[in-house]
């Protein structure tokens, strides 16, 4: 496994330039990084969403490997079907058995948080429970960005979206975000992890672990969105970095039920530092909304505390 940039740079870029993602889109970079590790023997499936749209605007495709576009709700079913068909063809001698690990065929499904947390969760849960050898990647940008920044169950508390706006009546989303990673842990699959594109080494390691765990795996990758979150387009990777430093998005992995936190910030930064940089939270800093900020901090602290306990509990 190549874990230095010096080595990785020799890998073929399988997601070409010329895709139509916004300037500074960290999502396109996530896919690029995944493919640098996964390699050309990969069947990729994309649920409807930003990344599916921008990489395959007909008659162009930015994918050099096999790519299947699927509907919003069923990419996990599509890729589990492709994986099963592949195994069946191998069994009947129509395809050669993959000898060395290098010849392994990878099956990856990806969707945004809308296509994963909300619309595609049924197909995802089914595919994970059936035990297909596939990886599901969620790029979580915390709203339906592709259709105009509508709230999803991944949208953080307080964030302004077009369907949960901040105005004179309400102050953004009123609910806390759903913890999808934990829902996937509860599927008792071999590998579940969270990462970000800023942490390229962590991301590459986790993609490789997910692909080689022998069963279903799930990766939740934070995807700062310049348009939907409202920060300058050059800041995406820094926002991802700070999401980890504030414990909003801890880097951790769960291997066969055992938790490991990959990065414990020495000194946790206040969540307000991270929120301040994003226009979607601007109203939270207005006088009268102090309790919102308090709640946001409490929630992050509570989630982090739980994660620490889970790590301790599963390592006893």
């Amino acid at each position: 496994m190549a874990l230095s940039l010096k080595e990785m740079v020799k890998h073929e870029d399988l997601l070409t330039g010329g895709h139509r993602a916004c300037a500074g889109c960290t999502g396109a970079n996530i896919l690029r990084q995944i493919m640098l590790t996964a390699g050309p023997n990969t069947v990729m499936g994309g649920a409807t969403g930003c990344m599916e749209v921008v990489t395959t605007i007909y008659p162009y495709t930015a994918w050099k490997n096999s790519f299947i576009h699927s509907a919003f709700e069923n990419v996990a079913a599509t890729i589990s079907g492709a994986e099963t068909a592949y195994r069946s063809l191998q069994k009947h001698g129509e395809l050669p058995q993959a000898a060395a690990d290098a010849e392994r065929m990878n099956f990856i499904a990806f969707g945004g948080d809308g296509g994963t947390y909300d619309i595609g969760i049924q197909a995802l849960s089914g595919a994970m429970e059936r035990g297909h050898r596939m990886v599901y990647v969620c790029y979580d940008n915390g709203a339906y960005m592709n259709t105009g920044i509508q709230r999803s169950s991944a949208t953080p508390f307080g964030a302004h979206t077009s369907t949960a706006p901040a105005g004179s009546v309400k102050q953004g989303k009123e609910q806390d975000r759903k913890d999808l990673t934990e829902i996937l842990v509860a599927h008792n699959i071999p590998y579940v992890a969270q990462t970000t594109p800023f942490h390229w080494k962590d991301l590459a390691t986790k993609v490789e672990k997910a692909l080689s765990c022998g069963g279903p795996a799930f990766l939740n990758i934070l995807m700062p969105c310049t348009v939907g979150w409202g920060f300058p387009m050059e800041r995406g990777m820094q926002i991802a970095k700070e999401a980890v430093e504030t414990n909003f998005w801890p880097l951790f992995e769960v291997e066969d039920g055992v938790y490991k936190i990959n990065k414990k910030p020495k000194e946790r930064k206040p969540i307000a530092d991270w929120m301040k940089e994003q226009a979607r939270f601007r109203h939270v800093f207005k006088p009268g909304n102090e309790s919102m900020l308090e709640h946001a901090q409490q929630w992050v602290d509570q989630q982090w505390d739980l994660l620490l306990k889970r790590e301790t509990m599963t390592n006893m």
Partner: peptide
């Protein structure tokens, strides 16, 4: 789309 990676032609 049969030409893999042809987005490279889109500037």
């Amino acid at each position: 789309i049969t030409e893999a990676g042809n987005a490279v032609d889109f500037k």
